[in-house]
Design a protein around this nucleic acid. Sequence first.
DNA 1: AACCAGGACGTGA
DNA 2: TCACGTCATGGT
Length: 233
Amino acid sequence: MSNIEKVYKLLFENYGPQGWWPLLDFKGVNPTKTGSTQGYHPSDYSFPKNDSEHFEICIGAILTQNTSWPNVEKAIINLKKLNLIDPKNILSVDEEILKNAIKPAGYFNQKLKKLKIFSKFYIGLNRTTPTRFELLNVWGIGPETADSILLYAYKKKEFVVDTYTKRIFSRIGVLKKDEDYDKVKSFFEIELKSDFKIYQEFHALIVEHAKKYCQTKPKCDECIIKNECKQII
DNA sequence: AACCAGGACGTGA
DNA sequence: TCACGTCATGGT
């Protein structure tokens, strides 16, 4: 077992299956947990189950760019009330209404534009699966957003790298802090068993761990993987 | 009350 | 290429 797999195992044993991607109306109710342990649909990898959930993941991935999930949830709740978890409706609705709905997620001018451009792209796909290259060619979709969409909406084996990933594993000592996105991505894809479920869980576990212990000011004393980490403070 | 959040893009050098 | 500024709300 590689070092990385060992960390994965420890995180999974401590936090359990994460049930990502977070979907708002899982079981028909609003979430009581916002991105914390054991939310959503743990151990069920059959999501998304319909077009609406599929599109919800895509726009959630865009809305959460540099933004905390609770803020994104507020925006998605607004969108859902307005029947805007739908690419056609996003394109036809009044811009002020759309902008107002996504306001809690921040960067609303940029994100308004991103949602509209993505919606047009999404309709053009006509339910086919985009390549990573095609996604990256869409304005507003960078590497992390592309990989999130591919991994969680399309179940494609693309490892998602975010700031938490770089933070945790540079502290552990296996990465440089500002390592190139694609290098980090391929590093994990080489180290890990080739399974989209592992990729889904690992990224979610990384987020959970970063929120709980490996914050900007880390809580190393209580950290569950401190024995694997070089940077004990 | 600063600081940070599940980034991406535009710019100038 | 690359370092840096910009975008914006809300929780801690």
